[in-house]
Each structure stands twice: as C-alpha cells, then as structure tokens.
C-alpha cells in the first residue's frame, strides 16, 4: 500500500503540485477580480486529483491550506475539507466519473456533498456556525426561521458550495481535455483522457541504414 502511494509521487506528479496549488490561488484571485459570486479556489486540487490521483491531491490540499494559513490561520481547520475534495476527485476520476459532461456534473454534485458533509461539523464545532462570509447570513436566516444549528449550517453550506463545486469540476473537465497526450501519458490517470488511445502500430522500422 505505502509503496503504491509512493509510486504516485513520481517527479512529474511532484512538479504538478506547486502548479495546482498556484491554480487554487490564482483561480480565487481571478474570480474576485471578475466579481464572481463563487470562490473557485479548489480547481487546482481537483485537477491534480483527476490526473494524478487522490494521494497527490491530498498533499496538494494540505499544502494549499498551510499556505493560506500564512495569510489567515483561522480557517486552517478546513484543510480537512480540501483534502477530502482532493481524494474524492481522485476516486471519481479513477472510476471514470469524468468521462463525459453528464457524469462530470454528477461528480460535481458528489464533491459538493463531500464538501458539505466535511465542512459543516468544522463550522459548527470551531466557529459555532459562523464563517465570516456571506454564508453566515444565510445560516443566520435559517436559524431565525427556527432551524437548529446543524440544519442551518448544512443548508447554507449546500447553497454556497453547489455552484462553486459543479463549476470547478466542469472547468477541470474541459482543461483536462485540452492537455496534450504527451503529458497525460505520464500521469497516473492520464490514459483515461488521452485523445489517442494506444493504437500505436507495432511495425518495425524499414529504413535501411545509409551510412555506417
């Protein structure tokens, strides 16, 4: 098992991690600049899960949140959510759940579910249901309507996550489609997304040697 995990971390996979993490940050930044109502800050992690597998994505998530902690350590507990998303994306990819747009949307919903189930307890236990962004207002509304804290946090998490995660997974689906076969062929799950399946002819070379 451990050996198998280690094999996932070949040099190319290792070099993909910083890129994925940077994509998480840049995605968030661009979404802010464009004033989009969603975060789009897990695209890199999902991408890594999809092409390099769950374990590499787990490490990428861990480091992403550690680096975020440099700027704001308070939200570090959500590292568990990010890691779960990465692992989830890896497993979905493994079982062919990103092979077409419809399956990809289903994958987006599955990842939403993962994010909600893992982050809600963190929100309740560490922050008493608040998160410091707009979803707190939604949570407060549910609470005022008489829901209990768990119901309110769950409902508000679903509302804020669903668009973010479905869009993120779809984006990753289209990005992976445009990655070159040359690169994909060297990634763990890359063969699932190559345009040209292994159709290589087995013919030998026919050219005679001209000069020896």
């Amino acid at each position: 098992m451990l050996k198998k995990i280690k094999a996932d971390f070949n040099l190319l996979a290792i070099l993909l991690i910083p890129i994925g993490i940077a994509v998480n940050f840049v995605g968030f930044q661009v979404a802010q600049i464009l004033r989009l109502p969603i975060f789009l800050d897990t695209i890199g992690t999902i991408l890594i899960g999809v092409i390099a597998g769950p374990w590499v994505a787990l490490v990428a998530a861990l480091i992403t949140n550690s680096i975020t902690a440099i700027f704001n350590p308070v939200y570090f507990p959500y590292v568990v959510t990010s890691m779960a998303i990465g692992v989830g994306a890896g497993l979905l990819s493994k079982y062919g759940m990103l092979s077409n747009v419809y399956k990809t949307i289903v994958s987006g919903l599955v990842i939403t579910a993962i994010a909600v189930v893992v982050s809600s307890p963190i929100t309740v236990i560490f922050f008493g249901g608040a998160t410091g962004n707009t979803s707190s207002a939604i949570t407060a509304t549910f609470l005022a309507m008489g829901q209990n804290i768990w119901g309110a946090v769950f409902s508000s998490a679903i509302i804020t996550e669903i668009a973010d995660k479905v869009v993120s997974v779809l984006l990753v689906y289209f990005v992976v489609k445009s990655i070159s076969d040359r690169y994909l062929s060297k990634m763990k799950y890359g063969h699932l997304y190559m345009k040209k399946r292994n159709t290589k002819s087995k013919k030998r070379i026919t050219h005679p040697n001209l000069f020896t």
């Binding site: 464009l34 445009s178 060297k186």
Partner: peptide, 25 residues
C-alpha cells in the same frame, strides 16, 4: 459576461505551466 472571461484566463495559464514540467523535471 464576467463568468465567461474566467475560463480563457485560467486555461492557458494551466496548460503552459503543465507543459513546462517535463523540462523542469
């Protein structure tokens, strides 16, 4: 309109970064 600008911003960035990893390796 703004959402449509997101994809063409991020994709070339990801693709060019990924393309460079082989040489970085």
């Amino acid at each position: 309109v703004r959402a449509k600008a997101f994809f063409p911003t991020l994709t070339p960035l990801i693709l060019s970064s990924i393309a460079s990893t082989e040489e970085r390796a």
